Computed example of a mutant assay.
Amino acid sequence: MHIANLDGVSLHYRVDGDPDGAPVLFANSLGTDLRLWDSTLALMPKGLKFIRYDKRGHGLSSMPPGPYSMGALVTDVERLCDHLNLRDCVMVGLSIGGMIAQGLAVKRLDIVRGLVLSNTAAKIGTPEMWNERNAAIQSGGIEPLADGVMERWFGKAFRATPEMALWRAMLVRQPVEGYTGCSAAIAGTDFYTPTSGLRLPALGIAGDQDGSTPPDLVRETVNLIPGSRFHLIRGAGHLPCVENPVEYAQTLTTFLKEIGHV
């Protein structure tokens, strides 16, 4: 385990793969930690350097007082990249991680040379929706919402497996302040204009049973970037890297090869 102390926030991160390989940076979703990528990374080709981290308020990272802004979440990973001297990364972001990836690419093209926008969008939901959800969580905790979240996260077949209980447990053990802090960041974000100005290799990944960011929303966002690609994983929900890591890793690997990153 590694901790980077970055001007008011401490981020837990880990580095796997070839220390001299081309860097691939991963940012996970709301209510999960960096273990989200375990199954996918086990299937990726050798010769790459994989960096992943827990955003503020999640996993083993620190939890500054909320609410958070998307700018703060982007600055956190920017400082982590500078701390690790990372340049010319392909950044893979899922859900809020995809929003962070868009923000970092707009801000620091020296860090991000390619984007994978997985189960995400330039704008997710409405401020009213997020504010209502946060109010419910602050009064009653995450547990009452957990079953509904599982229906959005996973397809029907995966919800019938024992493994789903592990992800449900990860969600309900998530600190309320970290969850609502990052939810506030999503509520305040609309990246349609800045993302439409990006000119870099980009791949969109969606699950056809995703109840949080449906495929059309993901496609609409990635289509803002000229020349982008799109891949639909059937039978998967919001976390296809968990439900179908084989197809997910194959899709990532193909993209990395196409853009000369591996």
Rank of each mutant, 00 (worst) to 15 (best):
G66M: 04
T75M: 12
H58G: 05
L60G: 08
G59K: 01
A72Q: 15
L80R: 03
C81M: 10
T75V: 10
A72S: 15
L80C: 02
P67A: 02
C89N: 07
M70R: 04
C81H: 09
G71N: 15
D88Q: 15
P64W: 00
P65W: 06
G66L: 04
G66W: 06
L60D: 15
L60N: 14
V74N: 08
P65V: 10
S61H: 04
L86D: 08
D82G: 13
P64Y: 01
P67E: 02
L80S: 01
E78C: 11
L73H: 07
D82V: 12
G71Q: 14
R79Y: 09
D88P: 00
M63F: 00
H58D: 04
Y68N: 00
P65C: 03
H58S: 13
A72R: 15
G59W: 10
A72V: 10
L80E: 06
S69L: 11
P65T: 12
N85I: 08
S69Q: 11
N85S: 15
S62C: 00
H58N: 12
R79N: 14
C81Q: 08
L86R: 03
L84I: 10
S69Y: 01
H83Y: 14
T75S: 14
M70K: 08
P65G: 10
G59C: 05
R87S: 13
P64F: 02
G66F: 02
T75P: 06
L84P: 11
D82R: 15
P65R: 14
Y68F: 10
H83L: 02
G59Y: 10
R87C: 00
T75F: 11
Y68W: 01
L73R: 07
D88C: 06
G66Y: 05
D76Y: 01
P64A: 01
P65F: 01
Y68M: 05
V77C: 08
P67F: 02
D82T: 12
C81Y: 09
L80A: 07
D82Y: 11
V74M: 09
N85Q: 15
D82H: 13
G59Q: 10
P64G: 04
L73C: 09
C81P: 10
V74S: 08
G71I: 00
E78M: 12
D88N: 15
D76F: 04
S61W: 01
S61K: 04
R79L: 14
E78N: 09
D76R: 07
P67K: 08
S62T: 13
H58Y: 03
S69H: 08
G59S: 04
L84D: 08
R56N: 04
P67L: 02
P65S: 13
G57R: 07
H83E: 13
D88L: 06
S62I: 00
G66I: 05
P67S: 04
L84H: 11
Y68R: 06
D76N: 03
M63T: 15
